[in-house]
Every structure is written in C-alpha cells, then in structure tokens.
Design a protein around this nucleic acid. Structure first.
Length: 792
DNA sequence: GAGCACTGC
C-alpha cells in the first residue's frame, strides 16, 4: 500500500480537511483515493465516515478491500450499505454506500448526524443522486449543529468549478498511478467509425494494431449493440482471412449490457485465479445457467491462449462499470448513446452524442492499467479540444425530475424554495416546472406547491412517483397485491420481459399462449404474466418456452422465487426488510412499511396466496374475463400526469396536459381495439419515447369517468402558484389541449359517479363538440388518418 | 408495426 501515490499526501490532506469544512480532491485513476481517504481520516480519529459510490458493485468491492487492508471483518469496523443489503453494525466506522442510500438516510435524519465525515466519491460522473447530495452538503456544513467535514472527489477538468460552487474551497491534486498512455488522433473524422475502428484494429489504416504492435488486448468503444455485432462479425472475417502464422491469433469478444449477466460477469472474473483454475481443470464446455442453454461462447471464459490477442468491442459499460485487465490498446469512437428527457414534450429519446473530455480520458486510461499503452482516437485533436465538452452533461439535466423534486420537498428544508435550490448545475426552469405540474396532478403537492400528506408518503417509497401514487391508491381499492406486482414488473431489471422472438420462433409458439392483458393493456399483461409464472412455481423453463427473458438480480445468485419477488416486492419495500430471503418476507416487509407510514393495509396477501387470474368463475359454472377495474382505477390516479385521449377518427392519441402532443400506441402493446377497430378513448402510459415517431410505451385502458377529475385539475393548474413565486419568468399557461368540458357537465358527472348514462351523455356532448371543432379547424387532422396506425 | 447506452432507491 505504501506505493499508492496518495499516501505521500496524507499530512497535507489531513491539514486541509481540519482547516476547511469542504475539500475537493482531484484524484486520477489509481491514486487510491477511494480506499485510502477514509482510512486516513479514520486514523486521525474521525468517528464515522461515509463514502458514497454511484454504483453498488463499487461500494461492495471497495469496502471489502478496505476491510482487508485493515485486517477486520467486513460488516464490523468497515461495512457497506446498498439496496437490499446492509452489512454494517454498531461498530462500523467506515461505511461505503451508494449515493441513493445516503439520500434515503437523510430522509430519516436530515442532518446526517451519524457521520462526522462524508466523502462523495466519483463526483465527476455527475450522477443525479450525487448532484443532489452536493447541494445538500453545501447547506449542511452551514446549518448542521455538530461539526461536519465533506470531501468531494472529482476529475481534473471539473475541480475548479466544484471548488467555486463550494465557496472557493481548497483543491488538492493527487497524481494517479497509471502507466503513460500515448494518445493518437486521426487526421479527420471518419465517414464510418465502424470501418475506421476495423482498420485501426486489423486493417491497413492510420494504424493497424494487430499486425504491427506487440501483444496486448485491444478495447474498442462503440455506441450500441447493433454496431458492436456488426463490427464483431467484420473483425472475425478479417481474422479468418489473415495468413496463418503471419501474426498472432485473435479472439473477438462483444461486451454490452444486453448480454446475459453470466457472460458479463465472466469478463470481470476472467483473471480471477480460482476461476481460471476451474476452467483449466474442467475440460468440458461450461454450462451457463439461467437460460438453460449451453453457451457456445466458451471462449469468452478462456484466458487468451499464448500468442493470442483479445479484441473486446464494448459500449461505455467498459468505461467505468467493468474493468477488463490486459488491455494495452484502446480505440475510441468518440461517441456514446445517452438517454435524454425533454420536459416540454415529456419524451425520452436515446441519442448518439459526442463524449466529453472526461469520458475520453477515462477511456484512454483503460489502456494504461497494466503497462504503458496507446489510445487511438477516431477523431482529430482539434475536435477534442474545441468541440468536446469538458464534463459529461449531468444526469440532472437529462432526466425527469418529478421524483427528485418530491424528495427535496419532503425534506422540508427551512427557508428554501425548491426552484432556487443551489445545484452545481441547475436543471432548466422548464424541467422544474414540468416536475411540479406532474406532482400536482398526482396529488403529491397542492396548488400552492406545498407537499401534501399523500406526497410525503410517496416520497418514502423508493419508486417513481407515478408508481408510488398507484400503490397508495390501490391500497384504498384493495388491490395492493396486484399493483405491487405491476410496479415491480415495471421498475426492476429482473422483470419478465417478452424477449425478442425471431419470426421463426413466433411461428413455433403462437402468442396466444401468453396472457394478453385481457386487451386492457400492458400493465395488466405484465400482471398476468407474473401470475402465470407464479403458478408454475417460478419455472425458468416456462419463461424459456414463452420467449420471456428473466434478467439476473444483484449478482445473479438468487433462487427464482427470490428473484421474482426481489424483483417484485422488495424493489418497493425499501430497506425495511433487509434480509429478503424469500418473497413472503419481502411482502410482510412491505406491509410493515405501509404501516410505518400509517397506511392501513387492506386485502393484503402473500405472494404465494395470489389467486387472481384473468379468467374467473362466477360460481354458476360460467367463466368471465376479469376487467381489473380497481387496479386500472388506481393506475389512472397514479398516472394522471401521463394521460392521453384518442383522436376522433383514428387510433392516434393526444397527450393531455401537454401542448397537443400526438402520439401512437407502441406496436408491441397488448392493448386491443374494439369491434370497430378503435382503441379506448383514454389510456394512461408509462413513458413516451421519441423514436422517429413518438410512441407511448406500456399503456393501460382507463375510463372516461375516472378521467374527468383529472381534466378538472388540469383546468385549474396554475404554474405560477405551483412555483410558489419562485419562478421569475413563468409564462402564462395555455394548455390548449385540455378538453373544454363545461363546468356543469363535469359536476354532474363527478358527483353521480355511478350514473353511467349521464356520464355517457356528457361524454357524447364532449365528443360531438370535438368533432365539430375538428371540422372547423380544417382537414389537417383528417388527412393524417391514412398514415395512422390502424389496427387489424 | 418497432428497437433495446448505463446506473440507482
């Protein structure tokens, strides 16, 4: 350990921390900051130190390392806390935790008095949670009664900005321990960076590593699965075409998030001694569990044979999350795929964007971990210097902020206006207003922007606001079990997802095998699929037979039933139930959680008692299809901010509460049309995605009478009031697409909830007026009809 | 009739 560069700086670091409440540490990769800073401060006598990490694996692996260095048992003096897992005790003095966990802790104790030091590690990655924590830390050092020391670690390019944010706090530079990496630029930007990468690795391009350079693996950064697969097959062709004996052999390895987790894990385990021994001793091919299929890509596991070079083609997963040892050459396309949120249309899109300088340097650094390396940038240096942003656009400027704003509101920070919250990089006022409007529509804040009792309870649930609102409403309607399953299916990576079935497979297995959501939409379908799977006692074979994918959970060592309900309940359970050993425990944990919130639980059942099916008997020997009325009603309340109305003459929809956004039901949806080929008049949707055509993904059919109170609310929405005067330039709202229901009709409809006929009458008047309006406004809309999504 | 960067409570 004595060789770590940071050790020489110990005195300087301690001195700076003692004299300042906030210190910025610029520590390059390999400086040892993640493992050493906490130990130094511990030695100095600070009572309890928290170190946040943006990723779970990092929290676990770094804490394990520190426990080892200190010769203590993990979970005692040194421990970690991540979702579902708290390995700390009352003895714990150094605690590694994800930034999200620290945010949750601060909900229980806003002053975080348990800690004398808080270190926000990897702050340059600008994760949403770390950004919020930075704002909170700035307040906390000023307001907290007991002494608090805060350390922020960041990248070179970001240090001054962070220091300025924290009132010119001191910045310490700690050199890294990477080997030098020579950076080579191409003369101009290639027409096709796929071909350029190919040439650089194997061809006769501006460099050709494989034939001319000494041994060492090559890591190529591409944007996505499709490009990776194309490049892999081209590389394989080329390698095969190389003259035997003219150069060393090469194996090509794709690496991206959609690969089975087992395959990914194998990469990081590749050089794990035991594992290699295991492979050497078992001559048989390795059988991967999970899909029950024999993987042919055993080569991924094998260490490269002598005189063989690995070429790894990866997404940015290899930038931070996965480290592949043995890499000496990096080829950087200069691009990354990023998910962006547009608050004015509430749409997400996945765009290929130029990386930042920090990212480019991070990628280059991957070449210098074991010995001096080379990084080939497929773009000119002038583009790097002039066009690349210094730092990645922070997540807070690319996401919907409803959840974060609700969280901040629930903290009840004195004398703080959420819209003036001091962020290192503020989100746009448009984005904050969007969050407020959404929260108002789902009753989390009142018309003056103050958090409601419903909102307070929602904030306690670690779910996106729409889903936490749905759960609360479902509890009132006695369908909490079902709602929980839906929430879990939508919010977990371990959900059962309809896999991409090739046309071939489709013919073999008629879709009718799978529940169809009773035609009511995707939420219902997800519920039915889960229930069906539950009936098979969580049989993996059943998933396989139905073309469903079950993604692994937290390291992949869960039994199917835990997986399902970790996927299921536990996601919604928060930390109340720390040892989610089985689904029953998770559900009772959730029940406890609701009780803590003083929400009486009605109709609660354990997962194993779940009975409801899409077909039910009525006791007279007849069967009828369930209409999931209560669940859909709850979804309608929860998704009041994500509601669409069908257009008059076709199956296109218009979002309500937004400026006339025209969207379609996603073709993969389970929603079915009526006998006239029409979709339901109203649906709620889980998200809008802006592919070339805008789609609603995951929709659920809802009824007119449930929608009326929402339309009412939209009519009274006043952003100025919601912002509590915090916005200086709030534009007058003109929500042109709010249906213009006359007050009288609304009142009638709303007060006589059960009078179907009167509601029907109101609806007919409304639709008639709408038709009239369409005629007056012109033919544009009618013309569109031909293009639009007609259901068979 | 279309498309899956990566995290996290």
């Amino acid at each position: 350990m004595a060789t770590l560069p940071i050790v020489q700086y110990e005195d300087k670091i301690i001195e700076t921390v003692e004299n300042n409440s906030i210190t910025v540490i610029i520590g390059e990769t390999g400086s040892g900051k993640s493992t050493q800073l906490s130990q130094m401060l511990h030695r100095r006598g600070y009572s309890k130190i928290a170190v946040t990490q943006p990723r779970r694996v990092a929290a676990v692996s770094v804490s394990r390392r520190v426990a080892q260095e200190l010769g203590v048992q993990l979970g005692e003096e040194v421990g970690y806390a991540i979702r579902f897992e708290d390995r700390t005790s009352h003895n714990t003095r150094i605690k590694y935790l994800t930034d999200g966990v620290l945010l949750r802790e601060s909900l229980a104790d806003p002053e975080l008095n348990d800690y004398s030091v808080i270190i926000l590690d990897e702050a340059h990655e600008r994760s949403l949670n770390t950004d919020i924590l930075m704002g909170l830390m700035k307040r906390l050092v000023k307001h907290r009664s007991s002494n608090l020391k805060v350390l922020i670690t960041s990248a070179t390019l970001d240090g001054d900005k962070v220091s300025k944010f924290f009132r010119d706090c001191p910045v310490l530079n700690i050199p890294g321990k990477l080997y030098p990496v020579e950076v080579l630029y191409s003369k101009e930007r290639p027409v096709s960076y796929l071909d350029a990468a190919l040439k650089t690795a194997l061809g006769i391009g501006f460099a050709d590593i494989h034939v001319r350079q000494p041994e060492g693996d090559i890591l190529i950064f591409m944007t996505g699965q499709e490009d990776i697969e194309k490049l892999v097959s081209k590389l394989e062709d080329k390698v095969r075409a190389l003259d035997e004996g003219s150069c060393m052999d090469a194996i090509i390895i794709p690496l991206h998030g959609s690969l089975p987790p087992e395959l990914q894990a194998s990469i990081s385990l590749l050089f794990f001694y035991k594992f290699i021994r295991f492979l050497e001793t078992s001559k048989d091919s390795v059988l991967l569990h999970g899909f029950g299929k024999k993987m042919t890509e055993v080569r991924v596991f094998s260490p490269p044979p002598p005189d063989c070079r690995r070429i790894i083609v990866a997404t940015n997963i290899a930038e931070t999350s996965l480290t592949v040892d043995g890499v000496v050459y990096v080829i950087d396309s200069g691009y990354v795929k990023q998910r962006q949120y547009n608050p004015s249309s509430r749409m997400y899109s996945l765009d290929v964007v130029q990386i930042s300088k920090v990212q480019a340097n991070q990628r280059a650094g991957r070449a210098g971990r074991t010995r001096p390396g080379k990084c080939y940038r497929l773009y000119p240096s002038q583009i790097y210097h002039d066009e690349f942003l210094d730092v990645t656009v922070p997540e807070i400027q690319r996401s919907s902020l409803a959840g974060s704003v609700l969280y901040l509101k629930s903290l009840d920070l004195p004398d703080i206006d959420i819209l003036k919250f001091d962020f290192l990089d503020s989100p746009s006022s448009e984005s904050l207003q969007d969050a407020l409007k959404q929260l108002y529509l789902i009753d989390a804040i009142d018309e003056n922007g103050a958090i409601t009792s419903i909102g307070r309870k929602m904030a306690e649930l670690p779910l996106e606001p729409s889903l936490s609102r749905t759960l609360m409403e479902a509890n009132n309607y006695g369908c909490i079990t079902e709602a929980l399953t839906v929430a879990a299916m939508l919010s977990t990576e371990s959900a059962l997802l309809p896999g991409k079935s090739k046309t071939e497979e489709k013919r073999k297995r008629p879709i009718s095998d799978l529940p169809d959501g009773s035609g009511l939409g995707d939420h219902i379908q997800l519920l039915q699929i889960y229930e069906r799977w539950h009936q098979t006692d969580y049989d993996i074979g059943w998933c396989k037979d139905h073309g469903l994918q079950r993604y692994g959970v937290a390291g992949g060592h869960c039994s199917p039933s835990t997986a399902s309900h970790i996927g299921g309940a536990a996601k919604a359970v928060t930390m109340t139930d720390k040892k989610t050993a089985n689904s029953g425990a998770a559900w009772s944990g959730y029940e406890r959680h609701l009780k803590n919130l003083e929400i009486p639980v009605r109709g609660m059942m354990f997962a194993r008692d779940v009975q409801p099916l899409d077909i039910k008997a009525n006791g007279k020997g007849e069967e009828f299809r369930r209409d999931y009325r209560n669940l859909r009603k709850a979804l309608c309340v929860g998704y009041a901010n994500q509601l669409s109305e069908r257009k008059m003459h076709h199956n296109g929809y218009r979002t309500l509460g937004l400026q006339g956004q025209v969207v379609q039901v996603h073709p993969s949806s389970a929603l079915s049309s009526d006998e006239h080929g029409k979709f339901p008049d109203y649906v709620v949707y889980h998200e809008l995605i802006a592919t070339p055509r805008p789609f609603m993904r995951n929709v659920c059919s809802v009824e007119m009478k449930w929608v009326i109170p929402i339309i009412n609310k939209l009519n009274t929405l006043n952003v100025k009031k919601l912002s509590g005067g915090g916005m200086d330039h709030v534009e007058e709202e003109s929500e042109r697409n709010i249906p213009d229901l006359p007050k009288k009709n609304v009142e009638v409809a709303a007060s006589v909830d059960d009078s179907e006929s009167r509601i029907q009458a109101a609806r007919e008047r409304f639709l008639a007026r709408k038709a009239n309006k369409v005629e007056k406004e012109g033919i544009v809309e009618v013309k569109k009809e031909n293009n639009v999504n007609k259901t068979p």
